[in-house]
Measured scan of single mutants.
Amino acid sequence: KRPMNAFMVWAQAARRKLADQYPHLHNAELSKTLGKLWRLLSESEKRPFVEEAERLRVQHKKDHPDYK
């Protein structure tokens, strides 16, 4: 399984919050909304998630050196 990218790291927590706020939204609508919200974030707001995704990528490479 591939490591999560920055969006997926962020969306993991954001999806729970959004689903709690809008329990009537279908998963497809949640995903579209999350995409729009992510694009509205500034680079500095995204930075911690980009850094975490990079950490996960490096760890994955270490754990699975033959993964392509």
Rank of each mutant, 00 (worst) to 15 (best):
V9K: 14
A14V: 00
L41G: 08
K62V: 05
K1C: 00
H60K: 09
D20P: 01
K62Y: 09
R55W: 03
H24V: 03
L41S: 07
S42L: 01
D63V: 08
K68N: 08
Q59S: 08
K46G: 06
D63T: 10
L25Y: 05
W38A: 03
A19C: 06
V9F: 04
E43L: 14
R16M: 09
N27L: 15
W38N: 00
R16Y: 01
P48S: 04
P65E: 12
L18E: 00
H24Q: 13
H60F: 09
P48F: 02
D20W: 04
D66K: 05
E29A: 12
R47Q: 06
L30Q: 01
R55A: 12
S31G: 08
M8P: 00
L56Q: 09
Q12H: 01
F7T: 00
P48N: 10
D66M: 06
A19W: 06
F7H: 00
E43C: 15
G35T: 14
W10Y: 10
E54I: 05
E54K: 05
R2Y: 04
Y22H: 04
P23G: 15
L37W: 11
R47K: 12
S42V: 06
A53W: 04
D20Q: 11
R16A: 10
L34E: 01
N5D: 06
E43D: 14
N5S: 06
E43Q: 14
V9I: 13
R15G: 04
K1E: 10
L37Q: 15
P48D: 07
L56W: 01
V50Y: 07
Y22I: 14
R47W: 02
K36A: 01
D63E: 10
T33C: 10
K68I: 10
V58P: 09
R55T: 13
K46M: 02
R47A: 10
F49V: 14
V50S: 08
D66Y: 02
K36Q: 03
K68S: 15
H24Y: 04
A11H: 00
A14T: 10
H24M: 06
D20L: 13
P65M: 09
E45S: 13
S31W: 12
V9W: 05
K17W: 04
L37S: 05
E51A: 08
D63P: 07
K46I: 08
S42G: 11
M8S: 11
N5P: 02
A28D: 02
E45P: 06
K36W: 11
R16Q: 11
P3D: 03
E51F: 01
W38M: 02
A14G: 04
F7K: 00
L34S: 00
Q12P: 02
E51M: 04
P65G: 10
R47S: 07
R15I: 02
F7V: 14
E45D: 15
D20V: 11
